[in-house]
Nucleic acid binder design. Structure first.
Length: 979
RNA sequence: CCGGGCGUGGCGGAACGGCAGACGCUACGGACUUAAAAUCCGUUGAGACAAAAUCUCGUGCGGGUUCGAUUCCCGCCGCCCGGACCA
């Protein structure tokens, strides 16, 4: 019988499902078996179905999972569906079907496609984020965030009740801005916040004020803040979901507008999220992306007083003009700036405020008012996108006012410019044009003074650009001669003593905007009264289920669709304290990231109705040992999940500080290589006639010009099999028959519009899942980006067919396999043991391409044999089974074993068999290979040199030369240096 | 502009201080076959020589370290990914 993947694969997929072959054991059943938690990033089940990128990561983790099972581990390997989210809802709106219906259909399709690949998931643990039994616990976690605060003294989350107790016991006081401080007020605090008498004890606040203070401390809080409102999607978006001023999904323009929104206090965790990156076995590039996103910068805040005399007519004591709304200069607060370079304060020659800065109005002088207003109007009209595109060309306007540089009491002009962002730091900067590129450009354009205050350690400051490196302070009074690092410290000390500034740390990371004006998401477990207070529903009232609605479309206004569910809105409180109030449900829903923030915990205990996860099971399985997924989640999912995990860790619901110990990004699979023809290199496209003639030539040579999907005025594409028509000339390609036609060979991302998407179903039905899996793993390193090439798959299919023929025979090819008892011949045995070692190590380090190459070699070694020793055959089937599990099961059975091969133990290699008694030693003369000697592995150096010098091939290269040096690297090679 | 990664045959890639091109694809030749497919065997970086033996060149470009560099270091060029007025 020849190898027939279709029937074999169907048979074993059915067997695995029915027998629950891949069931993960709960800790009690597992005994002392070591655990491995191998996790895939669960997919968003889109309508388009699986693409070839999904199986890449899934196959990798599947190989690892199967390998560890063969090694006797208890493996948790699972699949689920991240099924809330915008695309399902948009599709639902478009087709007027309920998102639940499309989601369910998509999930079923995804499950079918995934099962067709023979992935070894424990299907009893399948989860779906849209299942009320699942999102009940998403809501529960939200309640934990809501009912917790971040204690800055311990740097961890604690229940809000703990805060109340501390306040009631007078261990803490409240500052005017609502911040909480240790009581008594610590030294230095006074200096920062001014009047210490304004700190108050908890008991002196009325209940409404107390409530406001507590709400201001919660990890989940509401805020009326400028948010990213996307009219096109009818929802607000998080910073992470906005790219270049457009929505990540759909590419609609996004505008800033103030709205009441739920926020999660991720900024409280900025330092821990940053520090703990160092404990993780993640790709360095990904850690760097998270570091950049958190964007911690250390520096100082500096207060600049506004020069009273510069704000005309509004000096202290002058009778106020009723029609002038500006405060008197007495009331003008200082302008606070953030800088990472306090050492350059003496070089600050002007200041700049963001156009949105609150002081802009009050400091602008009457003469400058028209110019300032015109500028504000112009910059308001610019979208975020425009502002970024104009980044190089600086614009700005003078306010007419001056500030006092606290370092030297110098009067410096205050400008307004949109290169200063309200969202970062304080929305105001001190400008040091000599040592900042942007300030330099601005000063050049508006002819403002430039003063050098840092001297490079070597060489001179170039006169045509800013010197932004560290060096030695000059022109800086008491800082002169100090290095940049020393000068920073000295200046901060000065600022703190003078009470005009202090050390400060700034983050790019903003709090996480957590509410969406959508239907298809988790409802908040929150109710509101008619004066805007919010209350948590009881944990025993979860889940708060989504109401069935015929009309779930966005309202087109910031009012969420759930506001249309009139009956659902009414909340009947069980809590007697709330029962008297008129309460209605929160109508916002949670963003898509909510469900994916903790799904890895639910896999551990998916059916638990009493807890998110059983603590015993949690501490057994966590942390995740290997997490594989795409790099697109570097700063969204992976940062959010870490944040939630840390909160749950602080509250003692999970046992590890980090969820994902080891993380690997699989590389993107690009579309098949395309060939574009040009008349000249870099020139215009060839004509349609010419293209037709090339096509004809290909046909003449028996080649297919398949996949011509676009004939635009610009380019002609041809894929895939025209390599034979093309040759390389220098560093570019030309058409072999007509070298005047240049050919550009490139691969592009798979996309519907380009028409180069490969559907896994087609590949599986033609070659089988085993060949498909092996092809994807053989393409190259897992992390590398690599182009798809359908032509290459046949190689893997041939391998599996050949293994089949060699072990069980194939009557169609007159191949009778002959499995014999008895020992494995020495040479083959050594080969087998090398393969066992290599394949095992390669799986552990995720180098599947070289592992498969090793399987090829082993199979090549037995291909010519008339008899295959049973021990060799069986070992080989086990080695193959993680990669091609279906055929391995079938061969295992045909070799006389009861199912399943999953219980077979991974073969062990014998180190003694890896050592060769005879080795082939390359001999070089002056680094060039001249001979190869076969010597005993334990031959000593002198013996080897004698052999070398006796070699007929080496002799001519030594004749008449002096031997300067003889190098023998034991068991590796010999090199003679002569001249 | 900044940060990270990568440049090796006709293609995917291997080796990552020690025999460059493992393994696969393609192509070519041979065996089997009436024939084809399938299968099996062989050749396949470039050049010199009629051919073999053999020699020369060759891992984007230029330099350095080393007995020895695809591998480590410095400087360019090109491609890919990410960030981008973050003070």
């Amino acid at each position: 019988m020849p190898y027939n993947p279709t029937s074999v694969e169907k048979k074993w997929q059915k067997y695995w499902l029915e027998n629950k072959t891949f069931r993960a054991l709960d800790p009690k059943e597992a005994g002392d078996r070591p655990k491995k938690y191998i996790l895939d990033m669960f997919p968003y089940p889109s309508g388009a179905g699986l693409h070839v990128g999904h199986p890449e990561g899934y196959t990798a983790t599947d190989i690892v999972s199967r390998y560890y099972r063969h090694q006797g581990h208890n493996v948790l390997h699972t699949m689920g569906w991240d099924a809330f989210g915008l695309p399902a809802e948009q599709y639902a709106v478009k087709t007027n079907t309920h998102p639940r219906v499309t989601t369910e259909a998509n999930v079923n399709n995804f499950r079918k496609q995934i099962q067709m690949l023979g992935l070894s998931y424990d299907w009893d643990r399948e989860i779906n984020t849209t299942d009320p039994k699942y999102y009940r616990w998403t809501q529960w976690i939200f309640l934990q965030l809501y009912n917790s605060y971040f204690d800055p003294f311990d740097s961890k989350a604690k229940p809000i009740g703990h805060l109340v107790a501390e306040l009631e016991n007078d261990n803490l006081v409240v500052a005017p801005d609502g911040s909480i401080h240790i009581s008594p007020v610590p030294e230095g605090m006074e200096a920062i916040s001014g009047d210490v008498n304004t700190y108050r004890k908890w008991s002196s606040f009325d209940p409404a004020e107390q409530r406001g203070i507590l709400d201001g401390q919660r990890l989940a809080y509401t805020d009326e803040a400028p948010v990213n409102w996307c009219p096109g999607l009818g929802t607000v978006l998080s910073n992470e979901e906005v790219i270049d001023g457009q929505s990540e999904v759909g590419g609609y323009p996004v505008e800033r507008r103030p709205m009441r929104q739920w926020m999660l206090r991720i900024t409280a965790y900025a330092d821990r999220l940053l520090a703990d990156l160092n404990t993780l076995d993640w790709p360095e590039s990904l850690k760097e992306m998270q570091r950049n996103w958190i964007g911690r910068s250390v520096g100082a805040e500096v207060d600049f007083d506004i020069d009273a005399s510069s704000v005309a007519g509004r000096e202290s004591g002058v009778t106020a003009d009723e029609s002038d709304p500006r405060p008197t200069t007495d009331d003008l607060p200082a302008i606070t700036v953030f800088t990472t370079r306090p050492d350059t304060l003496f070089g600050a020659t002007y200041m700049v405020l963001a156009p949105e800065h609150e002081l802009v109005d009050s400091i602008t002088t009457p003469e400058q008012k028209p110019a300032v207003e015109a500028y504000l109007a112009a910059s308001k009209g610019k979208s975020e996108r425009d502002r970024m595109q104009d980044a190089k060309d600086k614009t700005g306007v003078f306010t007419g006012a001056y500030a006092i540089n606290p370092a030297n009491d110098e009067k410096i002009p205050i400008w307004i410019a949109d290169y200063v962002l309200m969202g970062y730091g304080t929305g105001a900067i001190m400008s040091v044009p000599a040592h900042d590129d942007r300030d330099w450009a601005f000063a050049q354009k508006f002819v403002l003074p430039i003063r050098q205050v840092v001297q490079p350690l070597t060489g001179m400051t170039p006169g045509d650009k800013a010197f932004t490196d560290t060096g030695v302070a000059v022109n800086s009074d008491f800082l002169d001669g100090l290095t940049t690092v020393e000068a920073k410290e000295r200046m901060i000390e000065f600022l703190e003593i003078q009470n005009v500034g202090h050390r400060s740390i700034n983050y790019k990371l903003r709090d996480w905007l957590f509410s969406r004006q959508r239907y298809w998401g988790e409802p908040f477990p929150i109710v509101l009264d008619n004066i805007g207070n919010h209350y948590a529903v009881g944990e025993d009232e979860l889940p708060v289920t989504l109401p069935e609605m015929a009309d779930f479309k966005p309202t087109g206004t910031p009012e969420p669709p759930l506001s249309k569910a009139k009956d659902w809105l009414k909340y009947h409180a069980r809590n007697p304290q709330l029962a008297t109030r008129n309460l209605s449900r929160e109508t916002n829903t949670m963003p898509q990231w909510a469900g994916s923030c903790w799904y890895y915990l639910r896999y551990i205990d998916p059916d638990n109705a009493d807890a998110m996860v059983d603590p015993g099971k949690e501490s057994y399985w966590m942390p995740v040992d290997l997490y594989v997924g795409g790099v697109e989640h570097a700063v969204l999912h992976l940062l959010y999940a870490r944040f939630w995990h840390k909160v749950l860790f602080d509250l003692r619901f999970v046992s590890t500080a980090e969820p994902f110990q080891r993380l690997v990004n699989q590389g993107l699979i690009l579309g098949e290589t395309e060939y574009h023809f040009f008349e000249t290199p870099g020139g215009g496209a060839i004509s349609a006639t010419e293209f037709a003639s090339i096509s004809e030539e290909a046909t003449d040579q028996g080649l297919k010009m398949a996949g011509i999907h676009k004939t635009t005025g610009q380019k002609h594409y041809a894929t895939p099999v025209i390599e034979q028509l093309v040759e390389k000339k220098g560093d570019r390609y030309v058409l072999r028959s007509r070298p005047e036609i240049a050919v550009d060979a490139r691969s592009f991302k798979m996309s519907k519009s380009r028409g180069n998407v490969v559907n896994p179903d087609d590949i599986v039905s033609e070659y089988g899942a085993d060949s498909f899996r092996m092809y994807e793993m053989y393409m190259g390193p897992l992390e590398a980006q690599k182009p798809w090439n359908t032509r290459d798959i046949v190689g893997l299919y041939r391998l599996l067919s050949s293994v089949w023929r060699n072990l069980v025979g194939d009557d169609e090819n007159n191949k009778v396999a002959s499995i014999v008892a008895g020992p494995i011949p020495d040479e083959l045995d050594r080969h087998l043991h090398r393969a066992i070692k290599k394949i095992g190590e390669d799986i552990e380090t995720l180098r599947f391409n070289t592992a498969i190459a090793e399987i090829f070699k082993l199979n090549n070694a037995i291909t010519g044999l008339t008899e295959v020793p049973r021990a060799l055959a069986e070992a080989m089937v086990i080695l193959l089974s993680p990669f091609a599990p279906h055929i391995a099961e079938e061969l295992w059975e045909k070799l006389g074993h009861a199912p399943s091969i999953q219980t077979a133990h991974w073969p062990k290699y014998d180190p003694a068999k890896l050592i060769d008694t005879q080795i082939e030693l390359p001999v070089q003369v002056n680094g060039k290979l001249r001979d190869k000697l076969v010597v005993a592995a334990d031959a000593d150096e002198e013996m080897i040199f004698q052999l070398v010098e006796g070699s007929e091939k080496v002799k001519p290269w030594l004749e008449g030369k002096t031997i300067r040096k003889r190098v023998y690297v034991p068991k590796k090679m010999v090199n003679y240096v002569v001249n």
